[in-house]
Write a protein that binds this DNA or RNA. Structure first.
Length: 205
DNA sequence: TCTTCGATTGTCT
DNA sequence: GACAATCGAAGAA
């Protein structure tokens, strides 16, 4: 029988945001919908670090939209963009310091039938390979903004997933932040797991 | 109040 | 590779 996954401690999210972004690779993101769960292994993240980071939403200070980022660590910062997309972040750092990790892609592991019902237009390999695609696949939207990711029975939570070797985690500049100035635009704060889906499925068994 | 634009995706050329 | 979709937040006026 599979071992019950312990939830992540809140202390995990109090580490520097870049460390959290790297450490979240391989963890399991779960959305509990009634008695059903939809989940996936986190494969790609990006770190956004404080008001000085010119790519971060907090670059102009606290606003209605980014307020959750200023709150306690371990909560979900979910925002709407491009008139149609929801993006999911994990808030990190002390309360009052705005930092968060954007979840850019996951490998779906649970609730595949549910995803399939809503995404018959594309092949499973493309279900969760983008930040807005994974929120759509897991049915995550603004109603979950600010919810606590550390609760054992939380609607949205992060659990232990699989261990991905350090050498398979690649760092690169963040995507879609052309508006930012240097050095922020080039900071290697995007982390991706270089692992085949088949290998991930093996590790989950 | 008005204008601009986005931590993206999907489609078309 | 270029660009439309689509709308609320943010900043300017």
């Amino acid at each position: 029988m599979k071992m019950k996954s312990p939830i992540r401690e809140r202390d995990f999210y109090l580490q520097p945001v870049v460390d959290v972004a790297r450490a979240l690779i391989g963890k399991s993101l779960v959305h509990q919908i009634g008695d059903q769960a939809v989940a996936g292994i986190i494969l790609e993240t990006e770190a956004y670090d404080g008001e000085q980071d010119q790519a971060c939403h907090a670059r102009s200070g606290k606003t209605k939209r980014n307020a959750v980022m200023y709150g306690p660590a371990g909560h979900a910062y979910i925002y709407f963009t491009y008139g149609m997309h929801w993006l999911l972040n994990c808030v990190t750092g002390s309360e009052g310091y705005p930092a968060a990790v954007l979840i850019r892609s996951i490998h779906p592991t649970r609730g595949l039938e549910m995803i399939a019902q809503n995404r018959m237009d594309i092949t499973p390999a493309l279900w969760c390979d983008g930040p807005a695609k994974l929120t759509r696949a897991l049915a995550i939207d603004g109603t979950l903004n600010g919810c606590d990711l550390c609760q054992k029975t939380g609607v949205l939570r992060v659990e232990e997933g699989i261990t991905i070797p350090e050498e398979l985690i690649q760092a690169a500049p963040r995507i879609g932040i052309g508006y930012a100035s240097e050095p922020w635009k080039s900071k290697p704060w995007r982390f991706t797991a270089q692992m085949l889906p088949s290998r991930i499925d093996e590790l989950i068994k």
